[in-house]
């Protein structure tokens, strides 16, 4: 298989890339890691007139943790950069937990974090993790930069809020209220398969009290599901067996799974509930140990 014909540009600066996008009038597509785009080009699900390859732009591959705990991830940061990062396990345990579950190890060397969020696949791990974390995307266009919350950025399956002449140049995870904790669990039949169900839970803890709670799901609906409202009852509380169970049931209720060859909708909902209990119980145990 081979893609249909397209023009190709490999600009050296973000400004140059934006100018090419702007001139294309919406017929150009950005190529970053290409691990979703190139397969789509080969299948001809996508047939843009122009590809703007941003891989030759310097300074977009970084994971920066600021003094207040804000995490900034550049547009060319590969999945494996997150997987092998020394700083993420402390700065953002949710991202650290998800990093080695994305696709397969060879896709992770090339695919990008920001590109995955932009791709907005309902199965995508990063869009779910970012939604749970309350993250946002910094988009740059001809008129400068704007910041878009991920829950507003992912507007539907395979759709994001970028204008045709904008580039998502950075993902930002806001500074935690207290200590950033949480995890990401995914059930897949084999590595690289679409997930049967994936669950992200992010809690900011002050001592053993929850200061902020977020959750999101992948693979159990036609879109990334924001389940943050379902865990809101935990805020201001210490984690207990009862409130963990209540939150897990609420998150499972927010799922929109469909029965298919990976399992029935009831089964998938049960997986979601079990994963939430597993993550929260783990956090409760470690916060008790720390206290």
């Amino acid at each position: 298989m081979y893609p249909s014909r397209f023009g190709y540009e490999s600009p050296k600066t973000v400004e140059e890339a934006i100018a090419i996008l702007d001139a294309s009038g919406g017929e150009a597509k950005i190529l970053a890691g290409g691990q979703s785009l190139v397969p789509m080009l080969k299948l001809r699900f996508a047939a843009p007139e122009m590809l703007v390859d941003i891989n030759n732009i310097d300074g977009l591959r970084y994971i920066n943790v600021e003094a207040d705990g804000t995490v900034r991830i550049g547009a060319l940061t590969r999945h494996e950069d997150l997987e092998y990062s020394d700083v993420l396990p402390t700065a953002s345990p949710v991202l650290a937990a998800a990093a080695h579950l994305v696709a397969d190890p060879i896709v992770r060397t090339r695919g990008t974090f920001v590109g995955s969020v932009c791709h907005a696949d309902p199965q995508g791990d990063w869009a779910a993790a970012m939604t749970a974390l309350g993250g946002h995307i910094v988009a740059q266009g001809p008129n400068g930069k704007r910041t878009i919350e991920v829950k507003d950025f992912v507007v539907g399956p395979f759709q994001n809020a970028l204008a045709y002449n904008e580039i998502a140049i950075e993902a930002v995870i806001p500074a935690p209220k207290g200590k950033s904790t949480g995890s990401y669990l995914k059930l897949e039949r084999r590595v690289g398969d679409f997930a049967t169900a994936s669950v992200a839970v992010s809690l900011d803890m002050v001592g053993d009290v929850v200061a902020r709670a977020g959750s999101a799901l992948a693979g159990v609906g036609g879109r990334t599901i924001d389940a943050t409202d379902a865990v809101a009852s935990l805020v201001g509380q210490k984690l207990t067996e009862e409130n963990i169970k209540t939150a897990a049931e609420a998150v499972a209720a927010a799922a929109e799974p469909r029965s298919d060859h990976r399992g029935t909708s009831d089964y998938k909902r049960q997986i979601v509930k079990t994963f939430v209990i597993r993550i929260l119980t783990g956090l409760a145990e470690s916060s008790q140990k720390a206290a």
Partner: peptide, 26 residues
């Protein structure tokens, strides 16, 4: 041909990549 199997794995700047999922120009 669909970026699943890894038979086309090569090293690009020392790291493994699927060569069917990258353009030659890159």
């Amino acid at each position: 041909d669909t970026s699943n199997c890894g038979a086309c794995t090569i090293l690009f700047e020392g790291r493994p990549i699927k060569s069917c999922t990258m353009l030659a120009v890159q």
